[in-house]
Design a protein around this nucleic acid. Structure first.
Length: 913
DNA sequence: CGTGAGCATGGAT
DNA sequence: GATCCATGCTCAC
């Protein structure tokens, strides 16, 4: 933090109160947060900081659009406005209504299209701002001279927003919408400023501010001709990307830093030489006379309406990776999450049409052109860029990408990014593994503590309609792309959130916690899009950890004062909310010595557990500093209340599962690799066979973290392990069916993995798994079970149980059917009674037989075995996977998607059945 | 028969 | 309803 001394003062210079406890304010350029006293922090959180503390200070300006007064004189308000090219400011709210895409060097001079721009767009052409890569809104100084520098090419080059939710709507908010710097928005924008300050552009916020402020310039709202802005005398070529900006690095020493003089534009054409509006926002500058290489484009309309899912979200790190040490300027063009077919052997990468037309050379023949693309290692690949006629349109593909994709070790769900290195104009293909969390954004994952909503809104309930549960890739994808757009595009327009205006860009914020909020709109899919449903299903490998729907529900929390109802969807109980569920930080419900219900929540930063009220809702990211309930423990440095033993007893689920994993790992290192997600479930069950489960495990609550009185989801109706009525082997309740299915799936996975090993490895493995049934370990040994044996349908549990069980002599472990099926650590064979293990055995056995029967030499890579939905049931609705980033940060980015149809599970269902 | 190119289809937006 | 696009399908090789 800001002080190294023992006494801290409020960072607010107007306050300077001694901090008894500090609260985080805005992030400073050092990356640290400003330590604020409670009062200031509250003011800050409420967006009143400037009003409170700078009322009499200079630097107040009016939003050019709505007239709202914004204090532009301090770093705190940096995120509240953007500077307009033509001068003046626009509050972020209005700015969100529109964004400008940075132009492509290949674009025509603005004069080519400006004249035909609608009035509104014209206005924007001069007033808007662009994004610095990975950064927040940064004033963009247009350099008129540059507009003519590369008019030869006229390809569209929409400049996409990066991390910050930049609404693409052109419609401005005319009214005087108050810039309510809600925490949500605040955080969001802060991210941008943060990145701006911390990384890409070494330009202090205040520099921007100062320049914007001091310009004293009033915007001319309707200037049609781009003009050089008088503020921000920063070389465009360096300012619009996160890299190669060293020359524009400015004094970061303090907030008073001024922009270092007025530079002339560099001679080299900067990437930004024009402006474009983009987004599926209704802005359609395409109707304009866009030309490409001098000829009219056939589908100009689409070019500036790239779907957000294709917006490049290249992080600083990635940019750095791309640029290496060079001073090249990287222009992120677009990105695409690989579909199964993209990553498949066909070697065809389907290109989003608009991206293809915007960024790749024009092709008129289906044969297309060879396209040279460089990868991150500098290796050049040549792909065939071509198209197929499709309906009345085209379908663009890159052919021959398989080697490249393989060399990058990409698979479906990973994202490839396309960028261009300037000034060479080389295409660079980068990638982002699905499970990797861009660490540069980690800090941006700030959640809004005040409302319990993660500002990484994509992750949160915004994607979820009442009653729907996150599905794998929505969670995942959003996690993968933190900081990009946290603003929901799926929310209804009548959200109470200040950001919820229905800009057509699809970015809307949501005050999920507010009881008023509800998902009335039809759920839309996340960036990943519904198109990926198969991917969701088949590409489990992308998913580091899968959560079942119950686990997902554990992450979801009902809005305040809301008790979920439980509906049965395709046989599985799903909690349903009238209001939007919230992605909350999982907590442990417990009872304190006084008998009061409490929760234990773990700090994101220090991982200490803090006691919070039972009715408290935490955002997905929560830290000690947000522990307003216990000020004494609002610092990470303060010791944890719980002893290790207490904690051990408390932690019911995944946390302890991890420790068990470790335990298992000790026993059998080879098995660890499989110990992901549900593998752990089975492995634990197997590995711990015969191992007495500590009685304390039964202390684990059967209530998922979000349990509320009256909840009858299958988690909650399950008694703790060993308690309550036992499920019979023939039980066909959801739980039993679910567990069976899951284990079957699990075993399929296991076997699949096994089959990928050579015989020797398999033998070794089998030796190392003395407790594992041979049938599970030895893929090659199909003889132990008669291939003729009928493979019963899992739909027929009775059949399963009665018939299959006797054939499983080696499976001594038991899975307690009377435990929560989703709690891996509780699925210990040591728990009493359960016949679930037998169920699982049955299922597993049957599956193995089936596999041998149907495909003795099965190729383990077959999609049929790629079970994406390990979760309960064949209902994707109920499956959630969370990509746990490999970074040290535990906070993963995720994307959640909710399939709208029950078919979504596709092959998983089939496989599981 | 396997593979891949090209087109068709249909779900999602 | 139009469009996109992931993937299925067909057929030639």
């Amino acid at each position: 933090m800001s002080s190294s001394s023992s006494i801290k003062f409020c960072f607010n210079s107007n306050c300077k109160d001694v901090l008894e406890r500090s609260r985080k304010g805005w992030r400073r350029r050092t990356g640290e947060f400003a330590d604020l006293c409670d009062r200031c922090a509250s003011a800050y959180e409420e967006g009143k900081f400037c009003e409170t503390f700078h009322l009499n200070a200079s630097g107040w300006r009016c939003c050019e659009s709505c007239g709202k007064q914004i204090h532009c004189g301090c770093i705190v308000s940096f995120h509240m406005f953007v500077l307009l090219d033509a001068g003046g400011i626009e509050c972020i709210t209005c700015a969100r209504k529109s964004f400008i895409l940075t132009p492509n060097p290949a674009w025509p001079p603005p004069s080519l299209f400006l004249p035909v721009l609608p009035e509104r767009i014209k206005d924007f052409s001069t007033k808007n701002w662009c994004q610095i890569a990975g950064s927040g809104p940064v004033p963009w100084r247009q350099a008129p001279s540059l507009f003519t520098s590369s008019a030869a090419q006229s390809d569209f080059q929409p400049r996409m927003p990066f991390d910050v939710d930049i609404p693409s709507g052109i419609d401005r908010l005319i009214g005087s919408e108050r810039l309510s710097a809600s925490s949500l928005e605040k955080k969001k924008v802060e991210d941008s400023s943060e990145r701006l300050m911390n990384g890409s552009l070494k330009l202090g916020a205040s520099e921007i501010l100062e320049n914007g402020i001091n310009s004293g310039e009033q915007a001319s709202p309707s200037i049609n001709v781009p003009q050089k802005s008088s503020f921000l005398k920063i070389d465009t070529s360096t300012s619009h990307f996160g890299l190669g900006v060293s020359s524009s690095s400015l004094n970061e020493s303090n907030d008073q830093t001024k922009v270092s003089g007025c530079h002339a534009p560099r001679p080299t054409p900067p990437p930004l030489i024009g402006k474009q509006f983009c987004g599926h926002n209704g802005v359609d500058s395409s109707g304009e006379t866009q030309i490409r290489n001098g000829r009219p484009r056939s589908d100009a309309r689409s070019r500036n309406q790239l779907l957000p899912r294709y917006w490049p979200r290249i992080t600083d790190q990635e940019l750095q990776q791309i640029s290496g040490n060079s001073n090249s300027v990287i222009t992120p063009l677009f990105e695409k999450m690989l579909s199964a077919s993209d990553a498949g052997r066909i070697g065809r990468l389907v290109l989003p049409k608009k991206c293809a037309e915007a960024y790749f050379p024009p092709i008129s023949q289906p044969e297309g052109l060879p396209l040279k693309v460089q990868d991150l290692k500098g290796k050049e690949w040549i792909f065939q860029f071509r198209f197929w006629p499709n309906n009345n349109s085209r379908m663009y593909v890159l052919e021959g990408v398989t080697p490249c994709i393989q060399s990058m070790q990409l698979q479906a769900g990973d994202t490839v990014t396309f960028s261009r290195i300037e000034p060479e104009g080389k295409l660079v293909m980068g990638f982002r593994k699905a499970s990797i969390t861009p660490s540069s954004n980690q800090g941006n994952e700030t959640a809004n503590a005040s409302n319990g909503i993660s500002t990484n809104g994509d992750v949160s309930a915004k994607k979820i309609k009442a009653g729907e549960v996150l599905s794998t890739h929505q969670l995942k994808g959003n996690l993968v792309s933190p900081g990009f757009s946290s603003i929901d595009q799926a929310n209804s327009a009548d959200q109470a959130s200040p950001l919820s205006k229905d800009d057509k860009s699809g970015y809307k914020a949501k005050e999920v916690l507010g009881a008023k909020s509800s998902f009335r709109n039809k759920r839309k899919n996340s960036i990943l899009g519904s198109k990926s449903k198969r991917l969701r299903i088949e590409k489990e490998d992308l998913i580091e950890l899968k959560l079942t729907w119950e686990q997902a529900q554990g992450l979801l929390r009902p809005p305040l004062n809301s008790v979920p109802s439980v509906v049965v969807i395709e046989g599985f109980e799903v909690e349903e909310y009238e209001d939007a569920p919230i992605i909350g930080r999982p907590t442990i419900f417990a009872t304190d010595p006084m008998g009061e219900n409490i929760q234990w929540a773990q700090c994101e930063d220090c991982f200490k557990w803090r006691k919070i009220p039972a009715d408290a809702f935490l955002p997905a990211r929560w830290t000690c500093s947000e522990n307003s309930w216990d000020p004494e423990r609002s610092l990470c440095s303060v010791a944890q209340e719980l002893t290790a033993e207490q904690l051990e007893d408390l932690i019911p689920s995944s946390n302890r599962a991890a420790s068990k994993k470790m335990k298992v790992a000790k026993q059998d290192p080879d098995s660890v690799e499989a110990l992901e997600g549900l593998d752990a479930l089975a492995n634990l069950a197997i590995q711990e066979e015969g191992e007495a489960l500590p009685a304390s495990s039964s202390q684990a609550t059967t209530k998922h973290p979000r349990h509320r009185p009256g909840c009858t989801c299958i988690v909650c109706i399950q008694p703790p392990s060993g308690k309550g009525p036992k499920h019979k082997q023939t039980c066909t309740c959801n739980v039993c069916l679910t567990v069976k299915r899951r284990f079957r799936t699990l075993m399929m996975r296991r076997e699949q993995k096994q089959s990928e090993k050579d015989a020797e490895t398999a033998r070794q493995k089998s030796q190392q798994h003395p407790l594992l049934p041979e049938t599970l370990l030895d893929d090659n040994n199909g003889g132990s079970i008669s291939p003729k044996q009928k493979i019963p349908s899992s739909e027929d549990p009775d059949d399963d149980l009665s018939r299959m069980r006797p054939s499983l002599p080696t499976f001594k472990g038991q899975i307690d059917l009377n435990i929560q099926p989703e709690r891996d650590e509780e699925l210990s064979p040591g728990s009493d009674s359960g016949s679930m293990m037998r169920l699982v055995q049955d299922a597993t056995e049957r599956y193995l037989r089936q596999q041998r029967l149907t495909n003795p030499n099965r190729n383990s890579s077959g999609n049929q075995l790629q079970l994406g939905g390990i979760g309960i049931g064949g209902n994707l609705r109920n499956n959630v996977s969370v990509a746990i980033g490999s970074s040290s940060h535990q906070e993963a980015e995720a994307e959640c998607s909710v399939p709208s149809n029950s078919n979504a599970l596709g092959s998983t269902s089939a496989a599981e059945r």
